[in-house]
Amino acid sequence: MSRVVKVEDLHKTYMLGKVQVPALRGLSFEVGKGEFVSITGASGCGKSTLMHLIGCLDHPNSGAVYLDGTNVSKLDDNQLAEIRNKKIGFVFQTFNLLPRLSAFENVELPLIYGFFSVQEMRERSMAVLEKVGLAHRAEHRPPELSGGERQRVAIARALVIEPAIILADEPTGNLDSKSSEEIMAIFQGLNKEGATIIMVTHEHDIANCTKRNIHLKDGQVLSDQPVKQVCLPTGRS
């Protein structure tokens, strides 16, 4: 099993005014290709910070993040942008779609920052929209879509670049239970097809749908163990 993510002795401290707030304190783990990992922990345990570092949105104070064998902690802003553009698919709790663009255009957005032909952009975007079952709503704008549909558009946007890893930050946090089930079913389906997924959540039954759980406490790994998947693709317990 080849390694997709390797996190090595990661430290990150925020400055709140003049007070130093440590968010990550020496964190290490690895994620192999095809894994489906949930990261849990109480608020302020460093889950989101970890996601930002793996997602190349931020630099660590010390330690290293390896993505596909590259040490991304050493890269400059432009190189990080390129990694985000080529390897990382984000799914956010608040969907983070651009409200003025149609679903299709939202999905297309990452491709605009790469160098694709108009034709290829269209084909890839339609393909992933079909994959999340929203091809028929391609021309609708986010405000015209339900929460579950919006998150499916966001997943399509993450998939359109064929990322090395999908990073989902509380993807069901803003959804009702039925939509949550649908979204989790999509993630499980993607994982079955080979996608590597890291998902931050504080909901136990969501974490139980993944295959491995890393529990954080005060910026360190408290436990890291396989999950006996209890949720079925069709519904939660």
Partner: peptide
Amino acid sequence: IIEIGIRKSVGARKSD
């Protein structure tokens, strides 16, 4: 600001 954050998260560089 959020739009800028979204665009950056999907790979927009500073120059973009």
